[in-house]
Simulated assay, not measured.
Amino acid sequence: MGHNHSHSHVDENQSNKQLTVAVVINVLLTIAQVIGGIFSGSLSLIADALHNLSDAGAIFIALVARKIGNKPADGTHHFGYKRAEILATLFNSSTLILIGGYLIVESVSSYLNPQLINGWIVVWVAAIALVVDLATAFLTYRAGANNSINIKAAFIHNISDAMASIVVIIAGTLIILYQWYIVDLIATVLISIYVIYHGVLLLKQSCKILMQAAPNNIDTHTISNTICSKFNIESVISIKLWQLDDKESYCELVISTQHLVDLHVVKSFLHDNFNIENCIIEIQSIVNKSLT
């Protein structure tokens, strides 16, 4: 695994502008969908609106977190401010789960107390939403989806929003043609389940980072075996890995060796091959003095 520095900072100002535009048009879309949902009586349209609003919030969080994360470490925050984004993700994912649950409850209530739905309003508003979702996906992709996990997640969310809009269009069409009002409730439940699913994934990921769990993409056995064979280290007594945010990994090693070891070279190797941003190495049971 080669270390891969992101070069998104080169066009960060332009990227920020694109993300800001994406937030604004998603908020405007949300307002239009809520109004359309109220006038048409379509709960699935409101469900899609809340999903769009949550995605606007996710993009906004990524934008604010990027600014906060760029602040340097200080006397109080020795690791800097990069976990601001993780805290925001924790809040955002919890909100997603609550919204999804609320929509399912409302869909059951609507089923027990059915109302007429204007299918044409549903189709036209969902069609507008589809165009906006695709435009937002394009903006988030251009803003650096290839260089940032969080922006890439926002891009995937907007693609999924486009798919949700297609589901609503199909539901509205079936209402117009066959007066199948039940499809609106089915669409609402499907969108709600999708929202809850992604909320749980985000919640799980943010909790793992905050609980300092080891990164999923780094194998401790591979690290131990590699550095032992490459640097004449007898054994790795202890290895602890954790993530500062969703990109940077940190490591604490306790090794045993009787050979001369240049710790700077070991740290550079871990940085370049395992994406470990910073590593603390302690040596035990040595005869020769090591280089530090």
Rank of each mutant, 00 (worst) to 15 (best):
H221T: 14
I239W: 06
S8Y: 04
I104L: 06
P114W: 10
L29V: 04
G57V: 01
L291M: 13
S249M: 07
I255T: 12
K152R: 15
L210N: 08
S110N: 14
G2D: 15
S109Y: 02
N217R: 14
S54H: 02
S94R: 00
L112E: 08
T226V: 11
Q284S: 12
I68K: 09
L53N: 08
N26A: 06
A164F: 07
V261M: 09
A129L: 06
G69A: 07
N278I: 07
H7I: 04
Y81L: 06
V131T: 07
Y141G: 13
A22N: 04
V183H: 08
Q179C: 01
N70R: 14
A162T: 02
S285W: 01
V27W: 04
R142H: 09
E12C: 00
V122R: 03
Q115E: 14
C251D: 03
K152S: 15
S15M: 03
N273G: 09
V132D: 05
L45F: 02
S238T: 12
I159R: 12
I281K: 12
L291D: 15
D246Y: 10
L53R: 11
K82Y: 05
A214T: 08
D246G: 08
F60H: 00
S206M: 07
L103Q: 13
L190V: 15
T89Y: 01
G172I: 05
I59H: 01
K204T: 11
Y178F: 14
D262P: 05
N150F: 02
W180I: 13
I176F: 04
G101V: 09
S94F: 13
Q14K: 12
L201K: 11
L190Q: 06
I25M: 13
L270W: 08
L98V: 15
E277N: 11
G57I: 05
H51Y: 06
L210T: 10
S42I: 03
P72C: 04
Q284T: 14
V23T: 11
L103G: 05
C251P: 14
S6C: 10
S44E: 09
A126L: 05
